[in-house]
Design a protein around this nucleic acid. Structure first.
Length: 222
DNA sequence: AACGCTGCCAACCGCGGGTGT
DNA sequence: AACACCCGCGGTTGGCAGCGT
């Protein structure tokens, strides 16, 4: 049953995998990632599943560019804490450590250097070259692209699809706390708590009709 | 129009800490 | 107390898109 290590999938996640992961995380909560990975049938490591969820699929995430306020916060907190990305991320709701880390590498490091250099005398021309990119957050979040006949869904579409699938299978997004507050809700805790205790039974119980989970008419180039 | 460069982002890897047995 | 397992963190890499030459 359990795929061998060398059979584990790596690389970019497909929309199908995303929807499957979302489904199982909503069923069992954000814990026991390796078990979840195995039970879900995703040929992914628990680590990979967790990373995908935390950095991309979590409903609380804000997809898009940093606001100037966030930029300042990151700059200040990094000055205070250094590369404690997860710690910094906790101060920026909706942002992940990975996102902040990437952002820092590209934007802030340069800015910090600018600050340092501009801190020394010379022209006090503001470092207002911030956010010069023309790419809008909305566009970044939407990101619907066609490539070689394979449709790439935006997050909005994914969540819409999942919500639709749930309504069909008797589960609404709201009931699962999807539409509103983030996942770690009491209902989840209770639910997953008991579920995680069972093991084999649990596995059997979770062999869901995968067809129900799948977003209709999804094709892969693989 | 083609090519190369740079920026951005998603994902992987290794390691350390925490927790349960 | 020791061990094993799992989770989370930080660093790094690879691929893609946009831009400039």
């Amino acid at each position: 049953m359990a795929p061998k290590a060398e059979e584990m999938r790596k690389g970019p996640w497909t929309e199908q995998e995303d929807s499957l992961l979302v489904r199982f995380v909503r069923l069992f909560g954000e814990r026991r990632w390796d078990c979840l990975a195995e039970v879900s049938g995703l040929n992914r490591t628990g680590k990979s599943c967790r990373l995908r969820w935390v950095n991309y699929l979590h409903p609380d995430l804000i997809h898009g560019r940093m606001t100037p306020e966030e930029e300042h916060l990151v700059l200040d907190l990094h000055a205070k804490w250094g590369n404690r990305w997860s710690r910094i991320a906790r101060c920026l709701p909706g942002r992940t450590d990975n996102e902040i880390k990437n952002y820092w590498r590209t934007h802030m490091r340069r800015k910090a250097q600018e600050r340092k250099t501009s801190a020394s005398p010379s022209s006090s021309s503001s470092s207002s070259s911030s956010s010069s990119s023309s790419c809008s957050p909305a566009a970044a979040a939407q990101g619907v692209v066609q490539s070689e006949g394979v449709k790439v869904y935006s997050m909005d579409e994914i969540w819409d699809e999942i919500a639709a699938a749930d309504s069909v299978s008797g589960l609404t997004a709201e009931e699962c706390g999807l539409a509103g507050p983030p996942l770690p809700c009491p209902m989840w805790e209770d639910c997953s708590e008991s579920l995680w205790k069972v093991d084999d039974e649990f596995k059997m119980a979770t062999v869901l009709p995968v067809d129900d989970l799948m977003i209709s008419d999804f094709h892969y180039s693989d």
